[in-house]
């Protein structure tokens, strides 16, 4: 474990907590894409299949449980909670996320480190996570009003992956034959997708104005 990875995991945890706070306290999921949340629940399910078979550390297991539990809770809130679901604008959140899942699955079957079920699922989770934010970014373009919590949530979600890239650089430099091209490439694509959001988020912070993405 290194400081980059610990900070990254804490940033990721913070993003989930910000979102849960928004949904649980103000009982609203306005501006949040259910499609992205469902993709994240799938990402964690496919990535943590080894939660009962490979014990890495208490930290690792506890964090896996937290990410699984929170991602499914958020999907449950947005789908079934009688108050929260009212603030979900389904006619704006129309991204067909199945068109993201199929190519990622095919790619995972073609490019993976080992052709086993768990490994292909693990690989699929990385390819899928790289593009999981797309429905959310599309929704942001459509809904003009981006409230602070939503902006912070997306910022933290993007920052965690950028920090993971620092972790991967650090591990590549310090650990002999530590090479994992699949997470590296996926993580890079994922971080680049946040590029323009980071730019506008920084501008809104610098000029102290409300976050507005160009149409």
């Amino acid at each position: 474990m290194n400081i980059f990875r610990l900070t990254a995991d804490m940033t990721h945890l913070m993003s989930v907590i910000v979102l849960l706070l928004k949904i649980h306290t103000i009982k609203s999921c306005a501006g949040i894409s259910l499609k992205t949340q469902e993709l994240y629940a799938i990402v964690f399910t496919c990535r943590y299949l080894d939660i009962f078979t490979d014990f890495i550390s208490f930290y690792n297991t506890i964090m896996k449980v937290i990410f699984l539990w929170t991602s499914f809770s958020i999907v449950w809130y947005m789908r079934y909670h009688k108050i929260v679901r009212r603030s979900y604008d389904k006619d704006q959140d129309t991204f067909r996320h199945v068109f993201l899942m199929l190519p990622c699955l095919v790619l995972a079957l073609l490019i993976n480190e080992r052709f086993t079920f768990k490994e292909v699922m693990w690989t699929f989770s990385f390819y899928l996570e790289a593009v999981a934010i797309l429905p959310q970014l599309v929704l942001l373009q459509r809904t003009r009003n981006i409230d602070n919590l939503t902006g912070q949530y997306i910022f933290l979600l993007g920052a965690y992956r950028a920090l993971y890239i620092l972790n991967w650089i650090y591990r590549y430099v310090t650990e002999p034959n530590y090479v994992h091209w699949i997470p590296w490439m996926s993580g890079l694509v994922q971080t680049l997708l946040y590029g323009d959001f980071f730019y506008y988020y920084f501008l809104s912070w610098k000029n102290n104005v409300k976050l507005q993405l160009p149409a």
């Binding site: 990875r5 995991d9 990721h12 080894d50 490979d54 890495i56 690792n60 964090m63 896996k64 990410f67 480190e113 693990w122 993971y164 972790n167 530590y178 997470p183």
Partner: peptide, 10 residues
């Protein structure tokens, strides 16, 4: 187990 077989990151 050798590091490569298990993925130790979240």
């Amino acid at each position: 187990e050798e590091a490569t077989s298990t993925h130790d990151e979240l």
